[in-house]
Computed example of a mutant assay.
Amino acid sequence: MKILQLSDLHYRSQYLPATNAYQEMLTKMENPLIYLDLAIEKAKSMTAIDLVLITGDLTEDGEVCDYRFLREYFIRQFPTTPVMVTLGNHDIKENFYQGWLKNVPTSNYYNFICEMADFYLFSFDSSIYGNADGFIDKNQLNWLEEMLATHQDKPVLFMTHHHLIQGQYATANLPQSDQLWQVLKRHNILAVLNGHTHCHYQATIGEIPYYTVDGLSFLGQDEGGGLVRFVQHAGFSLYEIKAGQFQEIATEIVTSGKLLQKVDMRLC
């Protein structure tokens, strides 16, 4: 099986007039759909894709109309390929349920399990809108422990939004990362996939492969003292599951990395 991972589109049909330097940076960014198109086109040219995973921050600020647009966009791009998502800190659960799922709005965590031929896909929601670092409560951990305990006949591919390694990036990892790893290490996990940092990263935690994918919008480069250098940045990762083994087979960048703006995030 070949898997395409995308993340952090930060899509908005029209970016709002800037009221701070971060929003001004967004107005200088090229439309993320340009690079999403390029990423998908390149990925399709490299291999046949069996599954698409999007690891959060589909939108910049969670508008219902933007979820509706993205849902139709991915249906057009992948009419016969499953597209699975998890939510990020820029996503609003109520609007996602309404716009993407065409369901009754709710603030409930968006968790799900999808059974594949050789593994289970677990989508685990670590997002709280407006909380950049994310958060999971005791009920979330209990749900995960229970579901892993009752799905032991196949390995699990685990996807979430926030990064789970301290010091991986300038921004903080999920505060409950240690508790989450304690649960995951007790089970047969094929790999952990996430986004959030917009920057590719690979590691092995215990015996679990761990991958963070490049984002599809911008990359913030920490210059210290609260100053962040934002550049246009978009990429994707491809993986293969073969004979019960999970491996990354490609990670690609499809932007030039041009400077957008330097922003003092303490003022935003």
Rank of each mutant, 00 (worst) to 15 (best):
T47F: 05
E41T: 11
C199T: 06
S127G: 06
K44C: 12
Y11A: 07
D264W: 07
F122A: 11
G130Y: 10
K154Q: 08
R229Q: 15
L87Q: 14
E240N: 03
A234L: 05
K93C: 01
A234W: 03
D8G: 14
I241K: 01
E94C: 06
P175W: 01
W181R: 01
I75S: 04
S7K: 03
F78P: 15
L144V: 08
Q77Y: 05
V213F: 00
V104C: 08
G226K: 05
Y35H: 13
Y67V: 10
A48R: 10
D222Q: 03
F230Q: 03
Q179I: 00
G56N: 12
A132Y: 02
L38K: 12
E94F: 07
L216I: 10
T80H: 13
Q261R: 15
G195M: 09
D125M: 08
M84I: 05
T47P: 04
V254G: 04
V64D: 00
E207M: 11
V254A: 06
L267R: 15
N131L: 09
I92H: 03
F112Y: 14
L87V: 11
Y22S: 10
F112A: 09
K258T: 13
D57N: 14
F96M: 06
T106C: 05
A170I: 04
N142Q: 11
A243Y: 09
V83N: 09
H187T: 08
M84R: 13
Y201C: 07
N131G: 00
D137V: 00
G56H: 11
G257L: 12
C199P: 02
V52C: 11
E63Q: 11
Q176P: 15
L184H: 04
D91T: 10
T81V: 15
L36W: 05
L87P: 14
T251E: 05
G206V: 07
R186M: 09
L193A: 02
H187D: 06
H200Q: 05
N111R: 14
L121P: 15
T19Q: 13
A48Q: 08
N103R: 15
S217D: 08
Y201A: 08
L101S: 02
D91K: 08
E30M: 09
G224K: 05
T204E: 13
L216T: 14
I34K: 13
Y15A: 11
T171N: 07
L144C: 10
F158E: 00
T150W: 02
T55A: 11
Q5Y: 04
R229V: 13
E94I: 06
D50L: 03
M116T: 06
I165N: 01
N89Y: 08
Y210I: 14
E94P: 04
Q182L: 05
H200S: 10
S127Y: 05
L267V: 04
E24H: 03
L144F: 04
A21Q: 10
Q77V: 13
N31P: 00
Q152D: 01
L58Q: 11
A117Q: 12
E30N: 15
I241E: 00
A172M: 00
R71I: 06
G226W: 01
T255F: 04
Y73T: 08
D222A: 11
I3H: 09
Q247C: 14
L70E: 01
A234Y: 04
V64R: 09
D125Q: 12
M46G: 00
E252S: 07
H200D: 02
Q232Y: 01
D153W: 12
W143H: 10
H162L: 05
E145K: 13
D125R: 14
K262R: 09
L51N: 12
F96L: 06
I54H: 07
R76K: 07
H151C: 01
